[in-house]
């Protein structure tokens, strides 16, 4: 380690997000944080803890409970020249804000020919596995990847969460930043009835305390392999790693990190190498982001494929409460799909 390398410390994903916000607020006076309960209390998941005290009430504040209002106001602040980072308390509550996101934030640059932009980063915890029932568990990323004009980012580690969030905040386009809340405290691997790990032992839980970026639009190959390519993101990255370890599958696991814009080069190179492709997400199946990935792989890698592309997803039902683990695309579902895809290998 050289003297130039910035100091690092252990962080869980919440602390990493908090650190990203703190660093950006210190660097850029135009960055502001707002949302339900984010001010004095520091957010229901504590992601903004301490920020109001440090940066002041006019830069970190609670808002009325109106998601439509929160995003509409953020668009207006962006038009003034600020760089708002609104929080939507749960992704399940983002729907009242859809019009402001779809028709306004995503379209402002285009319709004003660049006169106005929406440099906003909408943070929101998403995903299930916490017994949150249907209104604290959803994965609506596919709704946003379908909108032209917003970027969609989903980290899977504390290190990436901080670096990606900083990149998203600096980005001049609106970004949806979905935080997989099941892995806020540790890299949950899908084995829900075994004790869960925390980030303290994971290499990506070692996070620089200062400024750094993880570029948007760049995937990470989190496990190199030859047998099959697994495309995944968020919580499912860890579930895929654990499943492959258990089954002894030499998979190449690609953590997409940014869904739009997508790192198509990394995907293409990997699938052409392995000849097989499994797509895994927790979100419902029909018209999910996996459908887009499947189409892209088919379009670009068809002559390299040795087996049909497989998708492992949540089922096309609302997220149940008590049958959560029957719903969750865990090691069994992934394992079955791997068996199918590797059948003739």
């Amino acid at each position: 380690m050289t003297d130039q390398e910035p100091p690092t410390t252990r962080m869980n994903m919440i602390q990493a997000i908090n650190s990203a916000l703190d660093v950006m607020m210190a660097r850029d006076p135009d960055v502001i944080v707002m949302g339900e309960d984010v001010g004095y209390f520091g957010g229901v998941f504590r992601a903004t803890a301490g920020l109001q005290e440090k940066h002041g009430k006019t830069r970190v504040f609670d808002t009325p409970i109106t998601e439509c209002g929160i995003i509409g106001v953020a668009v207006g602040m962006g038009a003034y020249g600020l760089r708002p980072v609104p929080e939507i308390q749960f992704a399940d509550y983002i729907y009242p804000a859809l019009d402001q996101l779809v028709s306004e934030a995503a379209r402002l640059r285009y319709r004003s020919a660049g006169e106005f932009i929406s440099p906003i980063t909408v943070r929101s915890p998403f995903g299930g596995g916490i017994f949150g029932g249907q209104t604290h568990s959803q994965s609506p990323e596919g709704i946003f990847t379908h909108i032209s004009g917003v970027k969609t980012v989903i980290p899977s580690t504390p290190y990436d969460a901080k670096g990606l969030l900083i990149a998203a905040i600096e980005d001049n386009d609106p970004t949806i930043f979905f935080e997989p809340k099941r892995i806020y405290n540790g890299p949950f691997d899908g084995y829900w009835d075994k004790p869960s790990q925390n980030w303290s032992k994971h290499p990506a839980g070692e996070v620089p305390t200062g400024y750094y970026k993880v570029d948007l639009g760049k995937a990470a190959v989190v496990r190199a392999g030859e047998a099959v390519t697994i495309l995944c993101y968020g919580t499912m990255v860890h579930v895929c790693i654990a499943t492959c370890a258990e089954l002894g599958v030499d998979a190449e696991i690609v953590d997409l990190r940014t869904l739009v814009p997508l790192d198509i080069e990394t995907i293409e190179a990997s699938v052409k190498k392995t000849g097989r492709c499994l797509i895994v997400h927790e979100a419902t199946r029909t018209s999910g982001f996996g459908a887009e990935l499947s189409a892209l792989v088919q379009e670009r890698c068809f002559y390299h494929l040795e087996a049909p592309i497989e998708r492992v997803t949540g089922f096309d039902t609302p997220y149940p409460h008590s049958l959560e683990w029957a719903y969750f695309p865990g090691p069994v579902r992934i394992g079955e799909a791997l068996k199918k895809i590797m059948k003739d290998a």
């Binding site: 949150g132 029932g133 249907q134 409460h321 008590s322």
Partner: peptide
């Protein structure tokens, strides 16, 4: 049928 969060 266990579909909803408690108290809903």
């Amino acid at each position: 049928q266990g579909k909803q969060l408690p108290i809903m």
